[in-house]
Design a binder for these strands. Sequence first.
RNA 1: CGGCAGGUGGCAUAGCGGCGAUUGCAGUGGGCCGUAACCCCACGACGUAGAAACACGCUGGUUCGAGUCCAGCCCUGCCGA
Length: 375
Amino acid sequence: MSKALEFELLNKDTRSKARRGRITTPHGVIETPVFMPVGTQATVKAMKPEDVEKTGAQIILANTYHLMLRPGSDIVRAAGGLHEFMNWHKPILTDCGGFQVFSLGHMRKITEEGALFASHIDGSRHMLSPEKSIQVQNDLGADIIMAFDECAPPDADREYIARSQARTTRWLERSIEAHQNPDRQALFGIMQGGFFRDLREESAREIVKFDLPGYAIGGISVGETKEEYIGVLEYAPDLLPENKPRYVMGIGTPDYIFEAVEHGVDMFDCVEPTRIARHGMAMTSQGRVSIKNAKYERDFGPLDPACDCYTCRHYSRAYLRHLFKAGETMSHMLLTEHNLRFLSRLSENIRKSIDEDRFLEYKEEFYGRYYRRDK
RNA sequence: CGGCAGGUGGCAUAGCGGCGAUUGCAGUGGGCCGUAACCCCACGACGUAGAAACACGCUGGUUCGAGUCCAGCCCUGCCGA
């Protein structure tokens, strides 16, 4: 059993599969369900670590592929690891590069050995294999690291998904073998299998055998319909051990989060809040607000009257709109901070609702405000 | 007063005689899901598509056809007095 991570199941909702948990890592405790902001290049874009922390974030992500290319994991290691390098002293999770196998699909070639990438920065060629991914993640030193997988495209056919999923399992075995310090970094396995239940079952059966400290559900929220997404959630979390954290990779809209939690998921991450912030979009208690809209030109009220974040306490919609239209970096900072606070608070409220056994009521109440259909 | 260069969307620009006129910025709206993302898409605007009419400074002319060629005028900029 890994000493790097401990998971306590604190409470279970009686009318759904939602659960409250607590993960303990070398850099601190994480209350679950938890939303994890993404800081791909060892920075949550537009945010200082201390401000990320103030939003209530308990753990952030960083990325193997990006940091391997720049600055290079040896440099991060020489700096004393990611926590020291980026001045974030709470837990960190590093993604393995498997998503880049998908998102940079046209710039790489997959073989049994791994994925051969042409760097999006300078075109140089890099083999990202299970061994390489884990070596980089060992250098980075995150509390939770991910086994190297292939995130297959949602429209791939069954035959491809079957082969890819089986290969990901073989890659998992190699990832475990390559892992140098399981006492300080917890290695999670990733379930694949696309939208085929039997392939998901096969994937789960194989990866669970390794008795890892946690498991992720990968390959969803990659452009499929919401129905397909929920379809996988109906059975996939149940295929994973109850006493281990379950992580759905890549979700960050409130509805996707609620659905995941309802089906027994504990962790989730997404670029959504940070990216849409830089594109002028805010998540508010009343639904999404596109701050670029002309109707906010003279709106001197806060972005979200129900929000306690720094942005909402000090700035108006009119000012945020002005900053955004003017191309000022400050708009990215303020909107990002707000969106991160929004999702942290959502996580807090979800945890509270599970503690009080009223998760479904909270979900309904939230949907009534956020997804109301007027305007 | 003379010489030169120009006048095309809000601004800036492209445009062998076939234009229902280009592109960028600005504008309006939308998207974004394990971050190649301060990015991408759409639309409107000069410039009219229900019909008719007007039409790239203005007025004429050449031509089957003119933003494009010609003439005059108006305006702008630069240079010289």
